[in-house]
Nucleic acid binder design. Structure first.
Length: 557
RNA sequence: GCUCCCGUAGUUUAAUGGAUAGAACAUCGGCUUGCGGAGCCGACGAUGCAGGUUCGAUUCCUGCCGGGAGCACCA
């Protein structure tokens, strides 16, 4: 049984003996470590209903808890205005340590999602356009969420949805026909797109619309040739990025595939769900919810918009994988549209709509101003990675590392992913170049560094894989108060779909380990066996944490 | 104008309604026998404003101020 659950049961028993009813017993970790490992405020909450002094009630509860201390719970006491604090015992710490040593890569897993099928859709870059920081955010967050729910036992399928048809593609193809940009490289395509987007506004709308039509219909050989080649160049390029970032998709969906079915479904429901307006087919969201607004699903030219394609996508997904939940990860700029689409889908297929969940993340902002792939004023993910990698290589010059380039790339990606995963996902990130090139303090490299240190210590002994520890230390360390909490952190990150809980925890653990490392002599010290076991436990948990964040844990750096 | 999101040290941020609001960067002051200084220890420093609910509010509610995003044929 988990210790938190055990403590709750003990409290529950005492409350029953006192004939006090409490709906939920809230257990928390006091911020102040001297206040113990767990704390509950039940007495203060119950005192209200019972019209008693909270502190006196807490004392009464503790009296009924007397004798319930066992090998795990060392001490229970009343503190402050009526908190009941639980201090765990050395044997609990030792047993947990042994559990970690035994579980290794599995430590922290839970079974709360066993049997559940979950599809996670993320990244969603558009062929012919740049893969920019926004896509890096979606990829980083989506990969981490996928791993966190897989750690909870779910069957996870990763999906990517790419916009390979639509006006943006037509703009690029038009510009390529004009000899702008280049069909051979992703940068060339990006330039073509930027030029086409500019010219669309400057009088070339009709020509570009004609190309858009031709791409949908696939009826023009020379356009098809440009389109096909550009599409492949983009997609191949994206694949190299996914490899670098550590993502393997199970499914790739394309707008060219969802467009037709989406259109047909929308058209079938005209009159009931959708209606015609100014030649377009729209959904009047405000009729269903006053927070929603009207959106065009099929435009007056007969083309499906993002909204109709999204309807097609929902069915395409459920055709290939009978999911219980489908999570889509996007920037929060589409929050309003997504709600409209979901509401419209709910009118068509309530069951399907209820399985769909949207997780939106904030925008990456540059101090210099807004990014726009339309004007070509973008920071691509690749350029960003290269820049950070260069800074890592400078630090690495004096180190003896096998493949410095690759190692620096791993560290650079860690730095960037950490920056994305360190805060609540819905908040905007202000990208600070100077900060992303600094690897001190809260950072991906800081976590990796703690991991390499632990690894290095263990490699110096012949006890890389410690099985069990028997003797406890005289004094418990701060580390022991951290390591047993990892499974709780994973559970919380999963419930809220918020990876930053893992990031924060891992950073605290790394900090505690670095302090421990500075203070204790680990090898050949007074508590060698126990300290080595603690080092091994930290190594295991940091590795598992980094895994959940989608960050590599190098042995050297 | 309407809708949604955000406002915490100089800066970037954390905190299931709980105790003295936790970190990091920057600034200032320290750390050689001990295993990786991308590290450690210390100092300074914060909840936008005004009400309300509560034993208790950064957290919930209302209003205001400030920032961002969205509001019909782009995604």
């Amino acid at each position: 049984m988990q210790i938190a659950e055990k403590i709750k049961n003990v409290i529950d028993d005492a409350l029953k003996e006192l004939d006090i009813t409490a709906r939920d017993i809230l257990l928390e970790h006091p911020t102040e470590l001297s206040h113990g490992d767990y704390s509950t405020s039940v007495a203060m909450i119950a005192a209200k209903g019972a019209k008693q002094d909270p502190r006196k009630l807490a004392v009464q509860i503790v009296e009924h808890l007397a004798g319930k201390e066992d090998e795990d719970i060392e001490r229970i006491e009343v503190a402050g205005p009526g908190f009941i604090n639980f201090h765990l015992s050395k044997s609990f710490y030792k047993n947990t340590l042994n559990e970690i040593l035994k579980e290794k890569d599995n430590f922290g897993k839970n079974e709360s999602l066993v049997g559940k099928k979950i599809m996670v859709e993320y990244t969603d870059p558009n062929p012919f356009k740049a893969f920019h920081i926004g896509h890096l955010m979606s990829n980083t967050i989506g990969e981490s969420i996928s791993r966190i729910i897989a750690f909870s036992g779910a069957e996870v399928k990763r999906a990517n949805y790419q916009g390979d048809v639509g006006p943006h593609v037509a703009m690029a193809v038009w510009a390529l026909q004009e000899g702008r940009g280049s069909l051979d490289t992703p940068e060339g395509l990006g330039k073509a797109y930027a030029h086409g987007a500019k010219m669309y506004k400057e009088g070339k709308q009709e020509e570009i619309d004609a190309i858009n039509r031709a791409i949908y219909k696939q009826d023009d050989k020379s356009i098809n040739a440009i389109y096909e080649k550009g599409r492949i160049v983009s997609l191949d390029y994206f694949e190299t990025l996914y490899k670098m970032l550590g993502t393997t998709f199970d499914y790739s969906f394309f707008e060219s595939e969802t467009a037709q079915n989406g259109s047909e479904i929308v058209k079938r429901h005209v009159g009931k769900v959708f209606e015609e307006s100014d030649g377009a087919i729209v959904f009047k969201g405000e009729k269903y919810n006053n927070k929603l607004h009207t959106r065009v699903f099929i435009n007056s030219q007969g083309f499906p918009t993002y909204e109709a394609k999204e309807i097609g996508l929902a069915y395409a997904k459920s055709d290939v994988f009978d999911f219980d939940t489908s999570i889509t990860i996007t920037g929060n700029e589409i929050d309003a549209y997504f709600e409209v689409v979901k509401t419209a889908l709910g009118e068509i297929d309530k069951t399907l709509a209820q399985k769909i969940r949207h997780v939106s993340h904030g925008m990456m902002k540059l101090p210099s101003g807004k990014m726009s792939s339309r004007t070509g004023d973008v920071v691509t993910a690749e350029a960003l990675i290269n820049e950070v990698q260069k800074a890592v290589l400078e630090i690495e010059t004096e180190r003896e590392i096998k493949d410095k380039e690759k190692n620096a790339e791993i560290i650079a990606i860690a730095a960037l992913k950490y920056m994305i995963l360190r805060q609540a996902t819905h908040k905007d990130i202000i990208y600070d170049l100077k900060r992303s090139l600094s690897f001190e303090g809260d950072s991906g490299p800081y976590l990796q560094y703690a991991y390499t240190r632990a690894t290095s210590v263990l490699e110096k002994t012949n006890k890389k894989d410690i099985q069990e520890v028997y003797e406890n230390r005289k004094e418990t360390t701060l580390l022991e108060k951290h390591i047993y909490r990892f499974p709780e952190v994973v559970a919380e990150a999963r419930e809220r779909l918020e990876p930053h809980h893992v990031t924060t925890y891992a950073t605290e653990l790394a900090g505690a380990f670095n302090s421990f490392y500075a203070r204790e002599k680990i090898i050949a010290g007074e508590n060698e066996a126990y300290n080595l076991a603690l080092t091994r436990a930290v190594q295991i948990i940091l590795k598992n944490s980094l895994h959940l964040l989608g960050i590599n844990a190098p042995k050297r750096m």
